[in-house]
Amino acid sequence: MTWAGSIFDTAGTPAARIARLAWFLIIVSGVTYLLVLVATGIAMRRARARRTQGELADTRPETANRLTRNVAIATIATTLILLGYVTATALTGKAIAWPLNAQRPLTIEVTGHQWWWQFRYRDSVPSNWLTTSNELHIPVGRPVRVILLSNDVIHSFWIPELHGKQDLIPGHRNTTWIQADRPGVWKAHCAEFCGHQHAKMLFDVVAESPAKFDQWYIRQLASALPPTDSATKRGHDVFVQRTCIMCHSINGTEAGSNVGPELTHIASRPSIAAGSLPNTRVNLARWILNPQLIKPGVRMPPNALSPADMNALLDYLETLK
């Protein structure tokens, strides 16, 4: 079943095993439920028959014995089903544990912020560590160790197509793992209430072939190119001379703050505003002008820019591929 975006739309091993267990439990639950309904229905019908025949309630010992036996059978059946349930759970739990013989795992450190995601790829070469925001790329077929940290409150990292969720808890270092077995593009939601914009704290997930992933990675590592024409130069000046520089960073410029998402390659991202808005010129303009209208409570203030400044800034941002 491929109900897109659901826990059954599996694209990796842990999610697939969990989905199998979930199906098993849903079917067992359904059958159990039907049995309970049927038993209740039969009880109601027999009792109505007794009433139409003018009989009294049946408290004879032989009936009590029979009912005791039936209740005991039902209880034993329940126990056996539960034993099966616990066993199936334990087996699945083992099957989805971090594979100890994982080949060349990738390690990504995820830091949750109110209300955006920071991803730091811990390459084996320290100078190749990549920090990016709100968009997660992973190579198909490679296990990914995910380290979960929080900058402020509790968030939760959840890509249903790949695995169950794990919380990002300040003061704690939590870990999980994911592995995509096929390419795909998904949206992930923060899954722990974290304040005003919990609802729109999303990130894009892209699983792609290792070759494509490497290309993406190398491109992301590159610093932003300096602006070439006057419009983009003006846009760059707007960025570093106005409030943007106080929270955002662009590698290769003076902007180095990590209060907000880094924007070195923002033009390459499919969405903005933590995955909640398609990355178009119009949306970007609306967002920069007044984020509070789109995500009330978000930490980014409104920015009153003249149309000329705004267009220049947008031109510049569009060069940040």
Binding site: R17, L25, S29, T89, Q166
Partner: peptide, 27 residues
Amino acid sequence: FIALFTIGGLSGLLLASVPVDLQITDT
């Protein structure tokens, strides 16, 4: 009560199973 609570209880069993819970908790 029987009809509704049983659905609740069975959905609770789904939640009590750790691997499935990690998918459906907080949803």
